[in-house]
Simulated assay, not measured.
Amino acid sequence: MRIGMAFGDVRGPSPLPEITRQLHAAAAAGVRSAWISDGVGWDALTALAAVGPTPSGMELGTAVVPFPQRHPLLLARQALTTQAAVGGHLTLGIGAGIARMVETMYGLPTDQPAARLREYLQVLHSLLRGDPVDHHGKHYTAVGQLTPPADDRPEVLVAALGPVMLKVAGELAGGTITWMTGPRTLSNHVVPSITRAAGSRVPRVVAGFAVCLTSAEDAVRARFAQEFALAGQVPEYRAMLEREGADGPADILLAGDEAAIGKQLDRIRDAGATDVMLAPIGTAEEQRRTSEYLSTVVR
Rank of each mutant, 00 (worst) to 15 (best):
L172R: 13
L92S: 04
R129L: 05
H71W: 03
I36T: 13
L124W: 12
T290C: 04
R196S: 14
W35F: 12
V65L: 03
S215K: 05
R269A: 14
E171T: 10
P17G: 10
L74Y: 07
Q78I: 02
P203M: 12
P55A: 14
V156L: 07
L265Q: 11
E155I: 10
E18Y: 03
G248C: 04
S37I: 06
L92D: 00
S200F: 01
V65F: 07
L146I: 10
A271L: 13
P55R: 03
V297W: 02
E171R: 14
V202E: 08
N188R: 15
A49I: 03
S295V: 03
L186I: 13
G97T: 06
H71L: 04
P183S: 05
P149N: 07
A260F: 10
A25H: 13
A26Y: 01
L74A: 12
E103K: 11
T181L: 02
A225E: 09
G8F: 08
S200M: 11
S126I: 03
V123I: 15
C212D: 07
V191W: 00
T214I: 11
A50P: 02
R223M: 14
V40G: 11
N188H: 13
R269Q: 02
Q226F: 05
P249M: 10
V143E: 14
R267S: 10
R243Y: 08
T195D: 04
A284S: 09
R77M: 09
D218V: 08
L121M: 06
A34D: 03
A47W: 06
V65T: 12
L166P: 00
A115I: 09
R184Q: 07
G88Q: 09
T46G: 06
T110N: 15
Q69P: 07
G208V: 08
L16R: 05
D275F: 07
P183R: 01
P53F: 12
Q69C: 05
R204K: 10
Y106P: 05
A284C: 04
I281C: 14
L166F: 03
P183D: 05
Y237V: 09
R288G: 01
P235H: 11
P192M: 04
S56M: 06
E244L: 09
M240A: 14
G256V: 06
P72C: 00
L186Q: 05
S126T: 07
L92E: 12
G93D: 03
R196W: 01
P132N: 12
A231N: 14
A273H: 14
G12L: 11
R289S: 14
P66G: 13
D131C: 02
R299M: 03
P53D: 05
T176P: 02
D9M: 05
G97I: 01
Q69T: 10
E59P: 00
I281R: 01
V40C: 02
A231W: 11
G174A: 13
R118H: 13
G144M: 15
A44F: 08
F7L: 15
A225C: 06
G174C: 02
P53L: 01
L128G: 09
D43A: 14
A25N: 10
H189G: 03
S215L: 06
P68E: 06
N188L: 10
V143S: 07
P148N: 13
P183Q: 02
T141R: 15
